[in-house]
């Protein structure tokens, strides 16, 4: 499964905000870490703001805060703002009515179900734990290579 750039940025932004609950981050801060333009990220944040996942804080030092609950918001909530997670679809027109088309649809539907179940069961809080574990493990690997 390949996610669009906007979807990936949205996930990264939510993860950054979840790591700093109660604080705010500017699009420039987030954009710098992931090497993306503030302009592109601002569009992404706007979509998430409309959906109630983040909120903007105006004024000096303004930026964005996480608005939702990181333990209840799942990756699926973020992904489906930007794309259809059921994107693996047969588009055979009349072929869909054939036994072959229906058999193919069953296989693609299995892929969709697994994708949805995966994205829908991983919350932002769970992703944060995964990020922390991955970071810890890569630091340990680096240290062992140096040693």
């Amino acid at each position: 499964m390949r996610l669009q750039i906007s979807t990936q940025l949205a996930i990264f932004a939510v993860l950054e905000l979840a790591a700093r609950e109660g604080q705010q981050l500017s699009v420039a801060d987030i954009g710098e870490k992931y090497g993306v333009s503030s302009h592109h990220l601002a569009k992404v944040m706007h979509v998430m703001g409309r959906a109630g996942l983040v909120r903007s804080v105006r004024g000096a030092g303004g930026g964005y805060q996480l608005a939702g609950n990181a333990r209840r918001t799942t990756l699926l909530d973020v992904v489906q703002l930007f794309e259809d997670p059921n994107s693996v679809e047969a588009d055979g027109g009349t072929a869909d009515a054939t036994a072959e088309g229906q058999a193919l649809r069953r296989v693609l539907s299995e892929i969709d179900d697994i994708s949805r179940a995966t994205l829908g069961s991983i919350t932002i809080a769970t992703m944060r734990k995964l990020v922390d574990r991955t970071d810890k493990s890569s630091r340990a690997n680096t240290a062992s290579k140096r040693g």
């Binding site: 829908g120 069961s121 769970t126 734990k129």
Partner: peptide, 11 residues
């Protein structure tokens, strides 16, 4: 979903 969320949250 409840069980999936639980086991996922436990890594």
């Amino acid at each position: 979903l409840l069980q999936m969320l639980f086991f996922r949250s436990e890594g």
